[in-house]
């Protein structure tokens, strides 16, 4: 999972989750690894694509919860993704997803990405915006049949909901 904990839910409206960036995550060792040939030392930063995935999971849970997890919610479009600062080990990302539209076919969300650099103290500061669209695939993939069980919201999602104190039956 690319979020660690759900910290706030306003059903149908807003979901907030946090992600602690850690040097224990192996991908940070390669992103970016030291390059001795060019005299460059390692620069471990969270890949922007995984920040987008973190927002997609945050917003996806909001959309899924709004539809009582009856629908299979798939990320279908990134309307906007702007990030102005890197997130490195020992920092905390906070994703706030807000519902813009929800309809039987799908949903659109806007998202705020904030960063807390523990070394500097203070509070979370905005580092970007990520706006997304989700499709309810059973409603859109005309003629294509999917398994009845909701394979999108796996055990890991259930764990996040449980640790976030959110009751969900699906």
């Amino acid at each position: 999972m690319w979020i660690d904990r759900i910290v706030e839910l306003q059903p149908g409206a807003r979901l907030v989750a946090v992600k602690n960036v850690s040097l224990a995550e192996e991908h940070l060792h390669d992103h970016f690894a030291a390059d001795a040939a060019h005299g460059e030392s390692a620069l471990p930063v969270m890949p922007a694509s995984l920040i987008i995935e973190g927002m997609a999971q945050t917003a996806g849970i909001l959309v899924g919860h709004t539809g009582r997890f009856k629908e299979k919610v798939i990320l279908a479009k990134i309307n906007k993704a702007e990030l102005s600062r890197d997130a490195g080990p020992g920092m905390t990302l906070r994703y706030t997803a807000t519902m813009e539209r929800f309809d039987p076919m799908g949903a659109s969300t806007t998202g705020l990405v904030e960063l807390l650099d523990h070394a500097r103290g203070g509070s979370f500061g905005e580092i970007g915006r990520i706006d997304l669209m989700f499709s309810h695939i059973d409603q859109n993939m005309a003629g294509v049949e999917f398994p009845e069980h909701n394979f999108v919201f796996s055990e890991s999602f259930r764990t996040l909901l449980r640790t976030g104190g959110i009751e969900a039956h699906f």
């Binding site: 279908a76 479009k77 076919m105 799908g106 659109s108 499709s135 859109n140 005309a142």
Partner: peptide, 29 residues
């Protein structure tokens, strides 16, 4: 998915509600 995006944005821009399949009919095929 862009068709759904267009429907959402038209609703927001013009302040009316578009029913499912009203602008772009579905299930003809």
């Amino acid at each position: 998915i862009d068709f759904l995006d267009i429907v959402f944005k038209l609703e927001q821009t013009f302040g009316f509600k578009i029913a499912q399949g009203e602008l772009f009919p579905e299930n003809v095929a």
